[in-house]
Amino acid sequence: MSVLFDNWDLLLVAFAHTVLLFLIAGLLSLLFGTLLAAMRVGPIGVLRKAAGVFVTLVRNTPLLILLVFFRIAGPKIGIQFNWVDIVWGDIRMTAFFAAGAVALTLYTSAFVCEAIRSGINAVPVGQAEAARAIGLPFTDVMRAVVLPQAVRASVPPLASVQIALLKNSTVTGVFGVTEAFSRMRLFTNDFPTQRVGIFIGFALIFVLLVEIVSFGANRLERRWRIA
């Protein structure tokens, strides 16, 4: 495991990429997933169907296939990310990074949509009916009654989805992003005698990151809980 301490700067850069991917794809997938969820529970039948088809297709496609599409097949039909070129010191957000972020965002959005929908479905029908019965207009029914309960109910599944995203971000390492997984593979190649130690080191950092996200979600859940 001494490799990790000797090359802590490389390790740090690798995990910086992982965390950046997580944050960017996490935020975008929350936005896009919420939009999808709104379409899926909205009153427009066509949009409900369209969002449903999108979610079913993306959810059942392996993330790796999405990445193959955006990294290998996409450029052949003009889907390119060459215009993305942000470099902060050793942190390089280039075409590879962008393709990875887009694939992760699309994939995670489908799960975010389902998590939010499950939250909305968790609100008892009587709540909305009672709100309408006392004469609240649609916006107030949503703002004051349905959404506050739905958001609370969707925190645990959303946390689960975001943690899965953190772990899934390793797949981008197969497609040229220099994040934690690709760094682990390089270390493993260069220091074959320390393979197990390298794995345990990387694994423990992932456990730590997962626990941080999980802890944050728990705090949020407890804070928003109604007595």
Binding site: N168, G173, F181, M184, R185, T188, F202, A203, V207, E211
Partner: peptide, 18 residues
């Protein structure tokens, strides 16, 4: 808890090299 939190890809590569 450990194996649930570790990305499966890391595990796969470890087994592959070992």
């Amino acid at each position: 808890e450990f194996f649930r939190a570790v990305p499966v890809l890391l595990l796969m590569v470890l087994f592959y090299y070992q």
